[in-house]
Design a protein around this nucleic acid. Structure first.
Lengths: 134, 134
DNA sequence: CTACAACTTTGAGCGCACTCTAAGTCAAGG
DNA sequence: CCTTGACTTAGAGTGCGCTCAAAGTTGTAG
């Protein structure tokens, strides 16, 4: 006998870090396909859906706009005929994130420089007050 | 004779990539100190201010909230007595960005994995249609 | 039987960071 | 003189991504 593990919205919220509100919102706008219902109308999530959500979370965390994710989800719903297009989307997003990463690293260096500068200024300040004090 | 180069809001907009609207907004909310005025009331920006704006842009691009930048600008206005606190802010922000960078890299790898997976699926699809066709 | 908790829906509200509008001032050119 | 255009202000509006509220249903425990 095959027992599929199913999860309530609460459980999925805890697992994925999204709120119940957000999970319903994602479903409403078409980001999540096929969330089945229990007899009482409550949502029952499967492991598959959880994996789907976790991938969506990674797209979001890397800055993909909701609009684009909706398009991606729509393609997924259309089946394997859209594999190439989905791959192209991911490649394009990959390029964007890579550039974003490059910039972040560059700016991080500027911040490091500034921290070092503040260090120097503080030491000079220290030195002055010491020589005045003596 | 010392001739300080000054810039109009238009010029600063072009240089910094911010719109004139945003430059005025930043000043209003206290991000920019000491923007002097020409006789007719128009803003005149100095090289110093431009450098200030460009640093603010890097803080924004690395995800620092406006609120925090306001605090930073406020400390700057209070003079060198706040050097240590400003340095602490930058250090804390540095840590946040570093973690963000780590996550981005991790998620980028997941995206790469998915791109490769889609590649494989497409090749399998290709193969099937070929064998059916023959 | 009743209370309660967990869910459901639709639609409104919110925080952030801008972005734009309206009405007015001013200097230069025709 | 009059238009044009770049600027000024205060305040309203926008888009994004949630987040919450209200009203209703269902299942379980006392």
């Amino acid at each position: 006998m095959v027992t599929k593990t199913e999860y309530t919205i609460q459980q999925v919220a805890e697992i994925t870090g999204l709120s119940g509100h957000t999970l319903r919102y994602y479903e409403r706008i078409g980001l999540l396909s096929s969330v089945v219902r229990a007899a009482n109308g409550h949502r029952r999530y499967t492991d598959d859906t959880i994996r789907e959500i976790e991938f969506l979370n990674k797209l979001r965390a890397t800055g993909m706009p909701i609009r684009e994710m909706q398009h991606y989800a729509e393609l997924r719903r259309q089946g394997q005929s859209t594999l190439a297009e989905r791959q192209a989307m991911l490649k394009s997003h990959h390029a964007v994130v890579t550039e974003q990463l490059r910039l972040l690293q560059e700016y991080l260096k500027v911040i490091e420089y500034k921290i070092a500068l503040y260090q120097k200024l503080q030491e000079e300040q220290q030195h002055e007050s010491t020589s005045v004090g003596s």
